[in-house]
Design a protein around this nucleic acid. Structure first.
Length: 233
DNA sequence: AAACATCTCAACCGCACCTAA
DNA sequence: CTTAGGTGCGGTTGAGATGTT
């Protein structure tokens, strides 16, 4: 006697499959997906049913565009946690990890790269400017500096002493008006890198994402007026 | 208008972890 | 303690949509 193993369906879900899945999830709850898949008669794996439900059919899901506020949250949480999509998704009610992951890949990753490239170019320009400045100002100590990475500066004076803070760098420059402007500008740039500060207005009609939320596990508060995260730890 | 390139996003895959027997 | 099935997660794929030449 031979058993005919019924082939599982794959690919895009049909409307009637969605309806059937919804009916059976309401009957059986969001668990035992393999059992649910069999009971429903859907020729889908339990895993596929679970994914379809969680990412598409579940109530209270948002299917629209990601708002500016949501984008800011994603950006900042990704800086903090990296590719912890499910963790980030928990901060954005109605959004799924899959959605956030896709959004990051198609929008924010590119933006971040451009931002980093711009920063790098600006710093390269600054190097050139500073060399010109040094050549023109012989009263200043001979100094060299290097761009260490996009988060910070490393400054080296002629005696080989290295200092890593922007304050030290500013102090190290001569106090001519040009040098002052240069150091102010570099200071701003450094602040921009250490905390990306979005100034986008936070007066959206959909304010459900401008939530103040502090949970003991990560101690983060989203400050909608400032458009940034506060770390309460 | 057609061909090609790029983007988007739903769905799949594989692995790690959890849990119950 | 071991094992098998279920679940969650991050990475990847591929079809369709959209943009560009």
């Amino acid at each position: 006697m031979q058993f005919q193993v019924e082939e599982l369906r794959r690919g895009t879900w049909l409307d009637e499959e969605d309806e059937r899945l919804t009916t059976f999830v309401n009957l059986m709850g969001e668990r035992r997906w393999d059992d649910l898949a069999k009971a429903s008669g859907l020729r889908r794996s339990g895993k596929s049913c679970r994914l379809r439900w969680l990412n598409y059919l579940r109530p209270n899901l948002k299917h629209g565009n990601i708002s500016v506020e949501e984008e800011n949250i994603i950006h900042q949480l990704h800086e903090r946690w990296g590719n912890k999509w499910s963790k980030i998704a928990r901060r954005l009610p109605g959004r799924t990890d899959n959605e956030i992951k896709n959004y990051w890949r198609s929008h924010l990753r590119k933006k971040t790269q451009i931002q980093q490239d711009n920063t790098h170019n600006q710093l390269e320009d600054a190097k050139e400017d500073l060399l010109l400045f040094q050549n023109a100002d012989h009263t200043s100590a001979q100094r060299s500096y290097n761009y260490e990475n996009y988060h910070g500066w490393s400054v080296e004076d002629s005696g080989g002493t290295e200092c890593n803070s922007i304050d030290a760098f500013e102090f190290s420059l001569a106090s001519s008006p040009y040098a002052t402007r240069m150091s102010d500008w570099i200071s701003d740039l450094s602040n921009d890198q250490s905390q990306i500060n979005y100034q986008d207005e936070c007066n959206s009609i959909d304010s459900s994402f401008c939530f103040l939320d502090w949970t003991p596990d990560d101690g983060l508060i989203w400050d909608c007026s400032a458009g940034s995260l506060w770390d309460m730890n």
